[in-house]
Simulated assay, not measured.
Amino acid sequence: MVLYAQRGERVHNTSLCHGACVEVDSDTDAVVNEGFKLGCISCKMRGEVPAEATVEWSFMPKGESEFTTIYSYKDLMSDIPDERFYERLDWNGSKKTKDLQDGSIYILNVTWNDTGTYRCIFNRTLIFTSFKFHNDTTKIVHLNVVPRLTRGIASILSEVMMYVTIVGLQVWLVVEMIYCYRKISVQGEEALRESAAEYLAIASESKENCAMVAVTE
């Protein structure tokens, strides 16, 4: 079963043998001198139809106005025509198949110059019995290179709320345990008092019976 997911948008069912494909957006913040995955997923709408696809990545640096091809993947082979990315790009998409749905690539050793806009183009051919159908899908990634990743305010608030919830649940559990203990204790004392009262009543009745027998004799 194949499942591609990072931050979900929509799900396209393919076929029972291929599972599900999820089209998602790529992350956009890369840390300098570290690796980064440029995500590009294009789900095949007709999962039962054989297909072949190629992927081409282009890059437009920040401040420029034209794209330059930096990576292509076709027939299970890759090519890096841009010397700026020699030995720094690696295929991170669908493996051992020409029917590509994940065209992601991985950037090794991100530099400040990698900031800019990346374009991923899927060129897919659906192979029907009597004809072939071609279509292109384009994905855009605006990459921002940062010195280090910072946590957003939403993430911090979520973590704080999680800890508050955990502490609140623990306090509630302690209160419930104390309440249950007191309730059981009170019920136990009432049961003891009832048992003692029954014992005294039986003893008193026995004493009266003995006195009546003595008077009769």
Rank of each mutant, 00 (worst) to 15 (best):
V24Q: 12
T117I: 12
W57K: 01
V11W: 03
M60A: 01
G35R: 07
I178D: 14
K44P: 03
Y71A: 04
P50M: 10
I80D: 03
V2A: 11
L157Y: 08
E83F: 06
W172N: 12
G188F: 08
S104D: 06
I41F: 02
T216H: 13
W112M: 11
T14E: 10
S42W: 03
A203P: 02
A201I: 00
D136R: 09
E23H: 00
I178S: 10
T69S: 08
A5Q: 07
W91R: 01
S185R: 15
T111M: 11
L143S: 04
T138N: 05
A214L: 10
V49I: 13
E205D: 05
T138G: 06
H12N: 11
T111N: 12
R193M: 05
L192M: 12
Y199I: 00
T150I: 05
T115V: 02
G93N: 01
A197E: 15
A51V: 03
V141G: 02
E194H: 10
V174W: 13
D75M: 09
A191S: 13
E87K: 09
E198M: 07
S58K: 06
Q187N: 14
Y73G: 01
A5I: 05
N135M: 05
V24L: 07
N209I: 08
K132E: 13
V164G: 07
F67L: 02
V141S: 09
V22T: 06
V215L: 10
R10M: 01
T69V: 10
D25C: 02
V160M: 13
I202Q: 13
H134Y: 14
E87L: 10
S206R: 15
R193Y: 06
K132N: 13
A30H: 08
S155G: 12
T68L: 15
V160C: 10
L108F: 08
D90V: 00
L89T: 00
